[in-house]
């Protein structure tokens, strides 16, 4: 059975993000990129351009005048937001087709899970910790990308692991390790190495199933852990009908801020439909 690296080596569909996404993440990391540079790159992808303009003209930004140029839009939504939009755009198509089966794994289901984790992560960062949550959002939308790689290359084995997981009491990664000899967090973490993502985002992807350590609160990893837990409890899990327990190190924090989390999840449906308006598929 292949190692994570070998798996990625075979994974051609997404070895790299689409050119535009790579370029945009690169430019965001570079201090010498100008808005004109962004405009030139984004114009290469008409769909992205339309979405960007739609996003900036949505009620969320509440601008008095209609924004009609990419450069102006970038000015208003900011670089990180732009990066996240590009990431969503780049990944969206990977999560299509392949309906679910008895294993509980399906790409559309995984998309809902990823989006929920992303939105929850950003909400937690913002509402509980007063941070912008852009990196948390990004980590959330990408964190299970390893599952897509596995579904592409070893679909039967992945489903076997998922079935074992549904009937067992260990995290999914344990059963993946048994069947595939690697797991999606490892695969995903390695895959995004070439994507110019911020370090904490990469860490969030790599460690989103690691409950052996206590991660700083707040932080991308701990927030992803919480969001993953809530999403699973809300039946938006990566594998349908299965939820892992909260990593123990987070229990005191959750209990202490329980009232706040309760208020927070009441607003989740609203935030999700808002996100759907902003990032959602038109079809």
């Amino acid at each position: 059975m292949p190692s994570a690296r070998e798996l990625i080596g075979k994974f051609s569909d997404l070895k790299t993000l689409p050119h535009v996404a790579i370029k945009v993440t690169q430019m965001i990391n570079s201090e010498s990129s100008t808005i004109q540079d962004f405009e030139e790159v984004i114009k290469l992808d008409p769909i992205l351009m339309v979405r960007l303009l739609k996003l900036v003209n949505s009620p969320y930004f509440g601008l008095a005048n209609k924004v009609e140029t990419v450069s102006k839009a970038v000015v208003f939504i900011g670089m990180k937001n732009l990066r996240n939009l590009v990431a969503v755009e780049a990944l969206r198509d990977l999560f299509k087709e392949k309906e679910g089966d008895d294993s509980g794994f399906s790409r559309p289901g995984l998309w809902v899970h990823s989006a929920t984790v992303a939105i929850l992560s950003q909400m937690i960062a913002k509402r509980i910790f007063g941070q912008d949550g852009e990196n948390e959002f990004l980590a959330g939308i990408i964190h299970d990308i390893g599952l897509i790689v596995e579904d592409q290359l070893v679909p039967e084995e992945l489903r076997e692991a998922a079935r074992n997981y549904k009937n067992g009491d260990q995290p999914l990664t344990v059963y993946e390790q048994e069947v595939i000899e690697t797991h999606h967090a490892k695969v995903g973490g390695m895959l995004v190495l070439d994507w110019n993502m911020p370090e904490d985002v990469v860490l969030g992807i790599k460690k989103h199933h690691d409950t052996s350590k206590e991660y700083p609160i707040p932080g991308v990893v701990s927030i992803i852990h919480i969001a993953e837990y809530i999403a699973n409890r809300m039946k938006y899990g990566a594998i349908e009908g299965k939820a892992d327990p909260l990593p123990p190190y987070l229990t005191p924090h959750m209990k202490e801020r329980m009232a706040e989390y309760k208020v927070l999840i009441k607003d989740l449906p609203g935030e999700m439909s808002k996100a759907n308006d902003l990032y959602g598929d038109d079809k």
Partner: peptide, 20 residues
Amino acid sequence: IEKEQAVRQIEVLTSRHTTL
């Protein structure tokens, strides 16, 4: 609590505004 969260969100927006 809602107000508290709203205040935090406003703070985030303010800092994002500054960042912008």
